[in-house]
């Protein structure tokens, strides 16, 4: 049984390799297809034809695409993602310094979404057509039908502009605080490690609103899926049998129904997480969050191909590993996986 599972997990890993290769090729090809000449941009408005040509040679853009690709791959192997044209920094450094900010925001948003939507979905399934069910329906509809930049701006308008409860949406920390010493890259956690409660509260205040914006967006699919998966599980024969056997309702709901319902939930969670990474780009813009999303948008506008390439690669890697993680989790939760397939 266990050797079989390990083999299965190994297979999943092996299957991820061609995906990664494909991503590298696509990231490369896409950025070359972008409109605009990076050399022109880089040289500035006053540059003449000769200096543009010089820059083009410096960047290796005068060589054929195939050679450029091999050079790119070679650099990738060395961990070199190139230099950002707009900031002049190494793309790898740029991304790694901004990545924790995005991850902190996404994970907080997902966490908020999970702790509200799962209980909500369970309760809605247990008491169909009750007020909880209606609340669930309203939230799901609202969450699914509101564009994320709108809900972000809406929250800023209400909670910052009108009520003044939230701090100004200017990034991860107010100017008066210094970022905590780098450990995990998550300001909330790092400030706790440093024992700096003041910075902790400040960073927490900053993250609440964007995280809620993301959570509202993620809540809809998770709550809806929890509800329908729970309804199926609660109506199943094994729950009926467990009830007839007199098991108490807590065991029935958590051990019998929820564990079975968690299988489709896991699948949807993977999807939601990837949606969130996409939605992040907009939220980061609205809240001036210094994450990789806003970095990528700026780079795209500036035809900064090395940065865009790096971003695509980084996101694709994240997607692949996320799916791998969900797959493996699924294998561990459901004993049937891989036996009849």
């Amino acid at each position: 049984m266990w050797t079989q599972k390990l083999k299965l997990i190994g297979q999943r890993f092996a299957l991820a390799t061609p995906t990664l290769l494909g991503v590298i090729i696509i990231a490369f090809a896409l950025t070359r297809a972008l409109p605009g000449d990076p050399a022109v941009y880089f040289a500035g408005i006053t540059a003449d034809e000769e200096s543009i040509q010089q820059i083009r040679e410096e960047l290796g853009l005068d060589k054929s695409l195939v050679i450029q690709f091999f050079v790119y791959c070679e650099n990738l192997l060395k961990g070199d993602l190139g230099v950002s044209l707009s900031t002049g920094q190494k793309v790898s450094e740029e991304l790694s310094s901004r990545f924790p900010a995005s991850l902190e925001l996404t994970l907080t948003g997902l966490f908020l979404a999970l702790i509200t939507s799962i209980p909500l979905g369970i309760l809605a399934a247990m008491y169909p057509n009750s007020w909880v069910d209606h609340l669930c329906r309203v939230l799901v509809t609202a969450g699914a039908s509101t564009p994320i930049f709108f809900s972000g701006l809406f929250f800023v308008f209400i909670f910052y502009y009108l009520l003044g409860w939230a701090p100004s949406p200017i990034g991860r920390l107010d100017f008066i605080y210094l970022p905590p010493p780098h450990v995990t890259g998550f300001y909330t956690i790092d400030s706790m490690i440093a024992g700096d409660t003041e910075t902790f509260w400040a960073s927490l205040k900053q993250i609440v609103l964007p995280a809620i914006t993301l959570a509202v967006f993620a809540l809809a699919p998770i709550a809806r899926m929890t509800r329908s998966a729970m309804l199926t599980a609660l109506g199943s024969e094994y729950v009926k049998a467990a009830t007839a056997n007199g098991l108490n309702s807590r065991t029935i709901i958590f051990v019998y129904a929820l564990r079975n319902a968690s299988l489709p939930l896991l699948t949807i969670m993977g999807l939601v997480f990837s949606y969130l990474l996409g939605a992040n780009v907009l939220v980061e813009k609205v809240f001036s969050w210094p994450g990789i999303g806003s970095f990528a948008v700026d780079a795209l506008v500036a035809s900064d191909y090395a940065a865009v390439q790096g971003f695509i690669l980084c996101m694709a890697l994240l997607f692949v590993f996320l799916n791998l993680f969900i797959d493996i989790l699924y294998t561990l939760v459901d004993p049937r996986v891989g036996i009849d397939g």
Binding site: A244, N245, G246, N260
Partner: peptide, 24 residues
Amino acid sequence: IKNIRGREIAMIFQNPMSTLNPIR
């Protein structure tokens, strides 16, 4: 009733494959 279920009066059903929790 909950104490009687399974303790005093027990039931078996049709489709035994689906009356057992599939992942336990």
